Amino acid sequence: MKTLVLVFHPSIGTSVANRRWLQEVALQPQRYTIHDVQQAYPDGQIDVAREQALVEAHGSVVLQFPVYWFNCPPLLKKWLDEVLAHGWAYGTGGNAFRGRKVALAVTAGIREQDFTPQGKWRTTLAQLLAPFDVTLAYIGAEKRPFFAFYGAEDGPSEQGYAERLGRSAQDYVRFLSAL
Rank of each mutant, 00 (worst) to 15 (best):
M1K: 13
K2D: 04
T3Y: 08
T3K: 03
L4C: 02
V5D: 02
V5R: 03
L6T: 03
G13I: 06
T14W: 09
S15P: 12
V16H: 14
N18W: 12
N18E: 02
W21T: 01
L22K: 06
Q23R: 10
Q30P: 11
R31D: 13
T33N: 13
T33L: 12
I34T: 09
Y41A: 02
P42D: 07
A49T: 14
R50I: 05
R50M: 10
E51I: 02
Q52Y: 06
Q52A: 05
A53D: 13
A57T: 02
S60M: 05
V61G: 00
Q64F: 06
F65E: 00
Y68C: 00
F70I: 10
F70L: 09
P73C: 08
P73I: 03
L80K: 06
L84I: 03
H86S: 03
A89M: 08
G91M: 04
G91L: 05
G94S: 04
G94E: 01
N95L: 04
A96K: 13
F97V: 00
G99A: 04
R100E: 00
K101C: 11
K101L: 08
V106D: 00
G109R: 04
Q113M: 12
Q113C: 11
D114Y: 14
D114K: 12
F115K: 02
Q118M: 06
Q118T: 15
K120S: 06
K120C: 06
R122L: 11
L125T: 10
A126F: 10
A130G: 03
A130V: 15
F132Y: 10
F132K: 04
F132A: 08
V134T: 13
V134I: 12
E142H: 14
E142S: 06
F149C: 01
E153D: 09
E158S: 02
G160Y: 06
E163N: 13
R164C: 01
A169E: 14
F175R: 05
F175I: 14
S177C: 05
